[in-house]
Simulated scan of single mutants.
Amino acid sequence: MQRILFGNHPTQMRGIVASIDDRRYEASFAPLDAVDLARFDLVVPLRVEQIAAARAGRTVVPDDRSVALCDDKLAFNLWLIDAGFGDTVPTLLDTRPTVFPYIRKTRRGDFGHGCRMIRHPGDDDGDDHPDVFRQRAVAGADEYVLHLLRIGDTIRFHVAYRYDMGQPLGVRGAIDRPASITPADPGDALPICTAILDALDYQGTCCFNYKREEGALRILECNPRFGGSLVGVVSEYLDAHLAAL
């Protein structure tokens, strides 16, 4: 029996308990900065703010630079453009766009918090705060997530899912929930996202959210953490992570 310590998370903990192979893994949850991490075979942070504390335990997590870059949606978009991946980035807009629809985002936040779809003139309150930016909306009811674990120079684990949002301009998160979630073939998203992680020399777990536009990949964000839809295959993820150590 291998002991796995996860960071606390209000929604993911229940799913992990329900999904994990408890014949092989003993799951615990705790604030990672308040526990002796040496007692566990693997430490898995579930939130970005838990990553720094997790480094004291047995795990592979992204460094501070990678976390800061990916956690800042605007900075990550700009990095993609500078690094030669600009064709995957929906067009960044100025503070007074005249083309609709577009999405207004805060630079940090998850589960759709800080994101608002602007469909018509007058829908935007014109907030010019430096933590807010605007970006062309990618229409389509299907949104995808690709979970990746990179350790060394190798992808050790990956799995993709399709979210049917039931509407072309949904903002997945607390307000707009998917009608269904099904496994997906990532296709060219896998080599492209792998190349992005190679360019970053990213280590650890992340998840890319993306859409397809006439078949072309459009990356919405990259979260430098364990993603929610990974809970259903958590044992396979743990197998891969432990094997790489």
Rank of each mutant, 00 (worst) to 15 (best):
R172E: 06
M13S: 12
I181E: 05
D123I: 00
G152M: 05
L238Y: 13
D124A: 09
E143L: 14
S66Q: 08
F6N: 11
A189V: 04
I81C: 06
R156E: 10
D131I: 11
P224C: 15
A38N: 07
L32R: 02
I219F: 09
R3P: 02
V138W: 13
T11P: 00
L245N: 05
T194Y: 12
M13P: 00
I155C: 06
M13L: 11
I175F: 15
I181W: 07
I196N: 02
C206Q: 06
R24Y: 11
T182Y: 06
G187Y: 13
P224W: 15
L220N: 07
I219M: 08
L78S: 05
L220K: 12
D128H: 12
A137W: 13
P168T: 04
R225P: 03
D239Y: 00
A34V: 04
S180P: 01
V35D: 11
R39T: 11
A30P: 01
D142Y: 06
Q50T: 05
R212V: 03
D125Y: 15
T88R: 12
L238R: 09
F76W: 14
L80V: 01
L46I: 01
N223Y: 13
D153F: 10
P130E: 14
G204P: 10
C207E: 08
R3K: 12
G122E: 04
L32M: 07
K105F: 15
V171P: 02
D176V: 08
I81G: 02
M165G: 02
S229G: 01
M117L: 15
Y161C: 08
T95Y: 11
L32F: 05
L200N: 00
V60T: 11
I20G: 03
L238P: 00
A216V: 10
K211A: 07
E236L: 13
L242C: 01
P178I: 14
E49S: 07
T154K: 12
H241S: 10
H158P: 00
T11S: 08
S66D: 09
N209A: 12
F111D: 07
R134W: 03
E213W: 12
F6G: 04
P45C: 15
V231A: 05
I219L: 13
L37Q: 15
I151M: 13
A174Q: 09
G215A: 04
R134S: 04
F6D: 05
V99Y: 09
V132I: 13
D131P: 03
F85G: 03
R218F: 12
V43E: 11
V35C: 14
E236S: 06
I51T: 03
